[in-house]
């Protein structure tokens, strides 16, 4: 049962990229905690890395890995194995390796220097974003056969989720500023996993600023148990839905 994911995992580990990525995360997080005397400032810089670098690396690494192991996938398809199982095994291998390098690279420094509520929120968000973007990358690479096109599409998605989407939200907020948008912005935040993760961490970090005005509403919602469930639920949906679509497409695809 676990044979296929294990092969994928060995394959990834042999390429050394994942080890370099782990080291990079580890050194960056450690040096941040060393440089800043105030650990909350270090957490802030770490949050930026998690929200920007993590999705990018997950997307690019996954797409490249998929195209590189295309021949392996083709070989596996000649075996009596279902397509669904092959793709899910690929996903499990990639996700597990990315997740473990995140947990080692960021998790250990965070637990050492700032094992607070903010720290755990940071780790939760980082882990979910890794899984979400791995899943999205699988969708992107299953859709197109061309490697350049697939990576380009993944990059575009990264750009959309980290930058363009927030620009659109700001545009909407300003165009409809005469209307009560508090509830609506909550909905908007759910449509972007990066935003959702950011708000989740922020609520632990900037408590005083968020208490003002609309902040109180977000705090009430996300700060409560229901808010936590909501965040976990939406993140899970973001992991499952792209992967599910990818599996469906992969099943019907003429390879």
């Amino acid at each position: 049962m676990m044979k296929l994911p294990r092969y994928v995992l060995y394959d990834i580990l042999r390429s050394k990229i994942i080890i370099a990525y782990t080291l990079f995360l580890f050194i960056v997080s450690l040096s941040m905690f060393q440089m800043e005397e105030d650990s909350s400032k270090a957490m802030l810089s770490l949050m930026n890395i998690i929200l920007i670098v993590l999705p990018l690396v997950s997307l690019i690494f996954t797409t490249i890995h998929y195209y590189n192991s295309y021949e392996f996938i083709e070989l596996m398809l000649s075996q009596p194995l279902s397509r669904k199982r092959i793709l899910l095994s690929e996903f499990a291998g990639v996700a597990l390796s990315l997740l473990s390098s995140f947990m080692i690279g960021v998790g250990i420094p965070v637990l050492l220097y700032s094992a607070s509520e903010t720290g755990f929120a940071l780790l939760f968000t980082g882990a979910s974003l890794t899984l979400v973007f791995t899943s999205i990358a699988f969708l992107a690479s299953v859709i197109s056969r061309d490697k350049a096109k697939g990576i380009g599409f993944a990059l575009l998605l990264w750009f959309y989720f980290t930058l363009i989407y927030d620009g659109l939200v700001l545009l909407i907020l300003f165009s409809f500023s005469d209307y009560p948008l508090e509830k609506f912005t909550l909905l908007l935040s759910a449509l972007n996993p990066v935003d959702l993760g950011r708000i989740f961490i922020m609520l632990k970090m900037d408590v005083s600023a968020l208490m003002g005005y609309t902040g109180a509403l977000y705090k009430d919602f996300f700060g409560s148990g229901a808010g936590l469930l909501y965040t976990i639920g939406i993140m899970t949906l973001w992991i499952i839905i792209p992967l599910w679509i990818a599996v469906r497409k992969f099943n019907k695809k003429d390879l």
Partner: peptide
């Protein structure tokens, strides 16, 4: 300044776009 005019924009606090 943006928040002063539009308090709802607080949802974008600490996002990449705001930093830019």
């Amino acid at each position: 300044m943006i928040i002063e005019q539009n308090p709802n924009a607080l949802i974008l606090l600490r996002s990449f776009m705001v930093t830019l």
